[in-house]
Every structure is written in C-alpha cells, then in structure tokens.
C-alpha cells in the first residue's frame, strides 16, 4: 500500500512539473507585458504554442544527422527527470535518493552538452555562435553552482535535497552569512542558466548577443516543441530549487495526510507565483548586458559561492 502511495506521489510530481512549467513561463510573460503596459498574450498561450508546434511537420536541414533528431528527446528527458527529483509540494518522494543535488546539476549539464552539440550539427554560423557562447557561460555557471551546492550541503550536512529542505525548515538554520551569499549566487546562476534578461533574452533570436535561441535556431515542429518545453521545465526546476532551499515552508512531509498535501500544493503554487512576479519585475527593470560582461557577472557568483564555502570551512557558525 505504502509503495503504491509513493508511486502515486512520484508520478503526480512528474505530471505536476510537466503541467505547471508552461504556465509559469506564460505567467512571467504576462506580468512582464503588464509591467510594460501591454496586454500580453493569454496565460495559456505557451500550451497552445506547444500543441501547435507538435502538430506541425518537422522541416529538417539537409545536413542534419541522426543525432540532431534524437537530441530533443534526450534534452527533454534529462530535464524532466531532473525536475521531478526536486521536492516541490512533498518531500521524501520514492525516487528522491536516485540523484542528489550534484547529480541533478550534472543531469542538466548532460542536457546542455547535447543541446550544444545540436547547435553545431547543421553546420551554420548561428548554431555555432550559440553553442560556443553557451559553453562559455556554462564553464562559469556550473562551477559556481557546484560551489553553492557545497556551501549549502556543508550547512545541511547532506547533498540530498529532501534532507536539505527538511534542515532548512528546522529552527537550527538561523540567519547565516554563507546562506545569504549562496542565495545571491544561486539567483545569478539561475538567471544565466535559464537565459534570462541580463545574460540572454528569451524573447528574441536576432540579436548579436543571443545564445540559447541561436543554438536551437534550426529546430522546428515537434523537436522545437520539446526544446521549448525543456526550457520551461528548467525555469520551473530552478524556481523550485530556490523555493525548496530558501522558502521551504509548507512542503508536506512524507505521508498521506490530505490537509498537509493540499497546503503543500497551495504553498508551492504560491511560491511559483511570487518568484514569477519577482523575475518579471527584475527583467523589466534591467537592461541586457554585452556578452563579454557575462563572465564578470558569473565570476561574481563563483566568488560569492566560493566565499560562502570558505566561510563554512573557517567557522561552523557562519
């Protein structure tokens, strides 16, 4: 019986993240449009886009190889699995021990590795520029992310997300300098990883500094739909990650108490909405930076995260 419950919750989580991811993106777009005094597309527009794209033919470049056709599925699967392992509304999911936070980051790394290969596959200048810049950004964002994981794992005494979330929810945490530094660094990394505004612009693809959109320029139809869905999922993943580490309130413990579960889901949706609002406001307020300013921006995240880790090594109380 317990196993069946666990399976239901794990499956529920997988469907929840898949279902909510386009909504989060739609919400951010809507809020951004409203902040700019535009009407903006309806909330459900991302779902319609996805369905429309899936029904269309794929137009494949003549020079594309078999790898180009497999990659959308690999990227989607990797991102989806990673997103289903981050605790959202309930902790202690059945397969939560399959991959700890380091492995989740590495899974996203796999997805990025393959996407960058896809950018090179057709043999166009745009794909190459996207891949090359994406890997440059990753070469700074990934170590920064790992150092953040180190800092938080040293505080929580675990790299297991369920355990970390439970620890962050306990009164033991308190206010710590290293946590603050880690949060700032994590937000910078999340912005860079999701190709959001100061680093990249998700709304354009004909701009000199474009990165992610250039890389996927040759995709169309169902392949493009999967790539889009993966980037929605990735945004949701990072928001869930920040929420479960730094706003762990309301996550239901392992169990089948219906009230707690409803509270958990409500709290999760609330956190998503809050993060979406903040993200939209931040993006509206800031201008995009030149591509070679990005290393400085990410370097700051790396240094902050390293500082947070060092503080933990120096003293247990920071």
């Amino acid at each position: 019986m317990a196993l069946i419950h666990d399976l239901i919750f794990q499956g529920g989580q997988m469907l929840l993240v898949l279902g909510l991811a386009p909504l989060l993106t739609g919400f951010v777009r809507k809020v951004k449009a409203r902040l700019l005094r535009r009407q903006g597309p309806p909330l459900l527009q991302p779902y319609r886009d996805l369905i429309r794209l899936m029904r269309k033919d794929v137009v494949l470049a003549e020079s594309a190889s078999w790898l180009f056709r497999i990659i959308p599925y690999v990227v989607f699967a990797g991102t989806w699995v990673a997103a289903s392992l981050v605790p959202t509304f309930r902790s202690g999911l059945l397969f939560s021990w399959t991959a700890d936070l380091i492995a989740i980051i590495a899974l996203l790394g796999s997805a990025r590795f393959f996407l960058a290969l896809a950018g090179l596959d057709v043999g166009t200048a745009f794909g190459g520029i996207g891949s090359s810049r994406e890997m440059m950004i990753a070469s700074l964002a990934e170590p920064a992310m790992l150092m953040i994981v180190f800092a938080i794992a040293l505080i929580a005494g675990s790299t297991q997300l369920s355990t970390m979330a439970a620890f962050m929810n306990s009164p033991e945490v308190g206010v710590r300098v290293s946590l603050g530094l880690g949060l700032v660094a994590l937000i910078i990394v999340a912005i860079a990883e999701n190709a959001r505004v100061p680093v990249d612009n998700p709304a354009t693809h004909l701009e000199l500094t474009m990165v992610h959109e250039a890389m996927v320029l040759e995709y169309s139809g169902r392949h493009l739909a999967l790539i889009e869905l993966s980037s929605f999922l990735k945004l949701l993943l990072y928001v869930s990650l920040i929420a479960c580490l730094f706003m762990p309130w309301g996550i239901a413990p392992a169990g089948v108490e219906p009230v707690l579960l409803i509270v958990g889901i409500a709290a999760y949706v609330g956190k998503l909405a809050l993060s979406g609002l903040l993200l939209a406001a931040f993006e509206t307020a800031i201008a995009k930076m030149r591509v070679f300013r990005v290393p400085e921006f990410l370097g700051a995240a790396l240094m902050l995260a390293l500082l947070a880790t060092l503080l933990r090594f120096v003293s247990r109380s920071f």
Partner: peptide, 16 residues
C-alpha cells in the same frame, strides 16, 4: 501529434 518530416535547406535565419 505528428510524425511527418521533410528535408530542406538549412534555415540559418534566412541567410544560409
């Protein structure tokens, strides 16, 4: 949804 596929020249933003 769809499993149709056709081959064409690379898009490359219109300037292949």
């Amino acid at each position: 949804a769809s499993d149709r596929l056709r081959r064409s020249a690379a898009w490359d933003c219109g300037y292949p």
